[in-house]
Nucleic acid binder design. Structure first.
Lengths: 203, 203
DNA sequence: CAGTCAACTGAACGTACAGTCAGTCTAGGC
DNA sequence: GCCTAGACTGACTGTACGTTCAGTTGACTG
């Protein structure tokens, strides 16, 4: 990589990071090119040297954020753990990761959000990244099923619902409907996901 | 109520209904006062006789939509049912209701969404309505706990998570990640909520 | 040191809308 | 049948913001 390429790469990162900070601070509506340019310390026009449009920039920034979070979750996986422990560990990790990105996530899961067309290149890109992640979680669940630790539930369904439960639990915090410590919250999700709410009958 | 009041009330309903149709069709970004006016068959200025701003209109329309759906769920409740049957019935009802409003909900749960400040009058109004609903669901769960059908879980937590699971399941459909028949989907949520995914050990 | 070129700048442009208001219409009272 | 109040209209205004592009900068070359 030449020196110029390094600088360009650095600028790109800087603009993406600035975009995410602006999104976290001003929500989607308040995210303007002017603000991102100011935050990144570049002129408005410069942004258009790196991104073809505002949508392009926003999509890239969000995608990057999600990708990082998913990668971090996957990195925290330890395949040598016992199945249930492994799942519990993944849930706690993702919970922690989502919580530490809550300013960024806030603009995605409460208040205003993305304007994305499911059909269309960016939408498909999102779905591809997300599906990869779901497949990873599903494979972990599947291996637990194979080992007899889980009921033979559809692993993709369970993976999706698990994500929704974690995000939902975070949303509950952001809506100020929960004030319990983070760990207690995460444990409650683990418990609910594994055991449900019904009184456990004798199998 | 005088004749004029009846007419004004009718206009108000018409504008709110038009706003919801426009939201469902064009998503939040594409919802303009011009479009709502055209859809309602009134002039732009007329809308400002009934609502003080675009935000005011949008908030009122969304609130009305949510209120109706919640009321319909509550109406479907039958307190004489056995606890688990009663919960199952509520889940299936809400699932059906959400599914039949999916065009409207789509703009709220995927793609772009509301720009609402949690503090501030509209935000507090939303939370009040939503909390009422959660309290209702929680009371149903509590009565099942009292009867020994459910584990002694925090009922407000469970009520919230249940809502997230149902909405999440609908989101999965909207994202085209599920194509199973609606009933099968709803049943899977019931099952997951009640029993979790773990193999049921002998109590 | 002059010349070249790509990166960068930010004033200016165009547009899409929210919101306004002078004017029109109509129903009901006198 | 005229008058008035207030509901309604829609052309117009103001503005915020995405996008552009003519000009500037500065690093490298010969």
């Amino acid at each position: 990589m030449t020196k110029e390429e390094v600088i360009k790469e650095y600028r790109l990162r800087e603009i993406l990071a600035a975009a995410r900070r602006v999104m976290a601070r001003y929500a989607m509506q308040g995210t303007t090119i002017d603000r991102v340019a100011e935050e990144a310390g570049v002129a408005k026009g410069t942004i258009y040297l790196y991104f073809s449009s505002k949508d392009d920039l926003v999509h890239a920034a969000v995608l990057e954020g999600l990708r990082e979070m998913m990668a971090e979750t996957i990195r925290s996986d330890d395949p040598t753990m016992a199945p249930l422990e492994r799942i519990r560990n993944l849930i706690l990790s993702q919970y922690r990761i989502e919580a530490s990105n809550q300013d960024f996530l806030k603009t995605l899961i409460i208040g205003n959000s993305l304007d994305i067309e499911l059909e269309g290149a960016p939408g498909r890109e999102f779905m591809r990244v997300y599906s990869d992640f779901l497949n990873f979680i599903a494979s972990v669940l599947q291996s637990a099923i194979d080992r007899g630790a889980l009921r033979p539930i559809d692993p993709l369904f369970a993976a999706f619902m698990l994500g929704e439960m974690i995000t939902g639990s975070l949303r509950r915090r952001l809506l100020k409907l929960a004030s319990s410590p983070l760990e207690a919250d995460a444990d409650a999700v683990v418990e609910l996901f594994l055991k449900g709410i019904q009184v456990i009958p004798c199998a």
